[in-house]
């Protein structure tokens, strides 16, 4: 389990990092929880690693008005243990506490997880339900992309070459909103066979689903049914409709779809019970 040779740089500033990332063959390294294992298996072989995990500029959690701004380099544990996140975006707190184990959460970062776009990762379900926005930066440019456009396909995002996530922006949860993340755990990896993140209030419902298909998605059809019926079972019944379900030794496509329906129902019920 030894990677190919690579160069390693640990720039002191974001600007310096973006300059280095403009090089062909450069790849950003944050917590390394996905990239390093892939390199050890020689499934990834970047020539140059730019360590952005040490940049303080990317490590922050703050509330600005009705939005939470979380630096891409913030570790899962920092999000999980943040009182601000717990108070203002409890769905993130709950979701992040389901990621891997404490060692992984101590190293892995919110931006790294989003950029890797593992189809079974936990975070993307919450990003979809939260309609999170990603501030992307590259040398000489900056743009903001919403979750639905950011996740493109399995392990594929809207990130361009040389571009990294600088910040994740999520809404401050209003009083009266209940949230829940329900996950069926793959027993070997700890990833989600399916994971469903739900926000529900008297005004709206948002359902984000991970694990089922090639990428996490917002189940708008299920949201519409729930909005009109407030019936969790009816809404959950359509959550997997049209999804091109993954299939592997841990769960067949049909069982995954079944689980998506069950876990959606559970998440809707739990979130509704927390509306307060």
């Amino acid at each position: 389990m030894i990677s190919q040779q690579f160069e390693y740089s640990a720039p002191a500033t974001l600007q310096e990092a973006l300059d280095l990332l403009a090089n062909e063959g450069a790849k950003p390294l944050a917590g390394g929880m996905s990239l390093i294992p892939m390199m050890k298996l020689r499934l990834a072989a970047p020539e140059q690693l730019i360590d952005i995990g040490r940049l303080r500029e990317l490590n922050y959690i703050r509330r600005e008005g009705e939005q939470m701004h979380i630096g891409a380099g913030t570790t899962h544990w920092d999000v999980e243990s943040s009182p601000i996140v717990r108070a203002h975006c409890p769905l993130l707190s709950e979701t992040v506490s389901n990621i891997g184990d404490i060692q992984v959460r101590n190293r892995g970062t919110i931006g790294g997880s989003a950029a890797h776009a593992d189809p079974s990762a936990d975070y993307p379900a919450a990003f979809c339900a939260l309609e999170a926005q990603f501030k992307l930066v590259k040398k000489g440019g900056e743009r903001v992309v919403g979750a639905s456009d950011f996740f493109v396909d399995m392990l594929t995002t809207a990130l361009e070459s040389g571009e990294i996530i600088a910040e994740v922006i999520v809404p401050v949860e209003q009083r009266g909103t209940g949230v829940s993340y329900q996950k069926c755990v793959q027993p070997a990896s700890g990833f989600a066979i399916v994971g469903v993140a739900v926000r529900v209030s008297s005004e709206f419902v948002r359902i984000g689903v991970t694990g089922l298909g090639a990428k996490a998605y917002r189940a708008t059809n299920a949201e519409e049914i729930y909005t009109s019926t407030h019936d969790a079972a009816k809404a959950a019944a359509v959550v997997a409709d049209g999804a091109d379900s993954n299939s592997d030794i841990h769960a067949s496509a049909s069982y995954r779809k079944h689980l998506a329906r069950i876990y959606t129902q559970r998440a809707l019920k739990e979130a509704a019970s927390r509306m307060g």
Binding site: P187, A188, I249, H250
Partner: peptide
């Protein structure tokens, strides 16, 4: 009883060649 199984496919590839798929 509950989790572990070494799975080969028909070509003799070991599907559970890592702890990502072999559930101890």
């Amino acid at each position: 009883a509950l989790w572990e199984q070494a799975v080969y496919d028909d070509n003799g590839q070991l599907i559970t060649g890592e702890f990502m798929d072999y559930a101890i």
